[in-house]
């Protein structure tokens, strides 16, 4: 399996902070076979890794765990996750965030948060199929400070380091971040 890349949250433009939120519309949308091209296009420019056909086939199957986000009706960001069996447990699953990113000009407008909030919210809902989700995790390039801050602010903790996670990239090291979800029981 190809290594999942870090979420790309770096390089922000500070003046976006001044933009009033009334000046634009934001909305989440489903990933469908018809707009899959837009998600592919996003991931191609956002991440240094090329994803396989089977990756996108799975994306179409995960329902609320793959979304794209619209800014003034233009697709500018997206998130793709997959569910995995928690190692050593049959009663719970882990949710892995494979990609989460927003096009550079549209950062610092709360779009990344909106995507992540959506994922976390749905991860905590009682699952329609399979066991419940106990943990959300992802990998981030080690020196991507913006991204690390972003996730840590939202309750993620670094749990493991992989010095050679991205062998084909210049910076090969990655951190695994995870957030344990509190079950109702």
């Amino acid at each position: 399996m190809s290594p999942p890349p870090a979420s790309d949250m770096n390089s922000t433009t500070a003046s976006n902070d001044k933009l009033k939120s009334s000046a634009f519309r934001v909305g989440l949308g489903d990933v469908t076979p018809n707009n899959l091209g837009q998600l592919k296009r996003l991931n191609t420019v956002l991440f240094p890794v090329t994803y396989t056909v089977s990756f996108y086939k799975d994306v179409l199957e995960v329902g609320e765990f793959a979304k794209i986000i619209y800014f003034n009706d233009i697709c500018v960001g997206g998130v793709c996750c997959r569910k995995e069996q928690t190692p050593g447990s049959t009663s719970s699953q882990d949710l892995y965030i494979a990609t989460l990113g927003v096009l550079a000009p549209y950062r610092r407008l709360g779009l990344g948060s909106k995507l992540l909030d959506h994922i976390l919210e749905h991860a905590q809902l009682p699952p329609t199929t399979g066991p419940k989700i106990s943990k959300v995790y992802l990998h981030v390039q080690k020196h991507n400070k913006e991204a690390l801050d972003f996730y840590e602010k939202r309750g993620f903790k670094a749990v493991e380091e992989f010095p050679n996670y991205y062998p084909q990239l210049e910076e090969t090291g990655a951190l695994k971040l995870e957030k344990v979800l509190l079950g109702d029981d």
């Binding site: 003046s15 933009l19 009033k20 000046a23 233009i74 549209y106």
Partner: peptide, 19 residues
């Protein structure tokens, strides 16, 4: 230069304006 249609700094346009 300044994310507005003029450099007066009066308003910040959404990123789609440049697009």
């Amino acid at each position: 230069k300044s994310k507005g249609f003029d450099n007066s700094g009066a308003t910040v346009e959404p990123p789609t304006a440049v697009l």
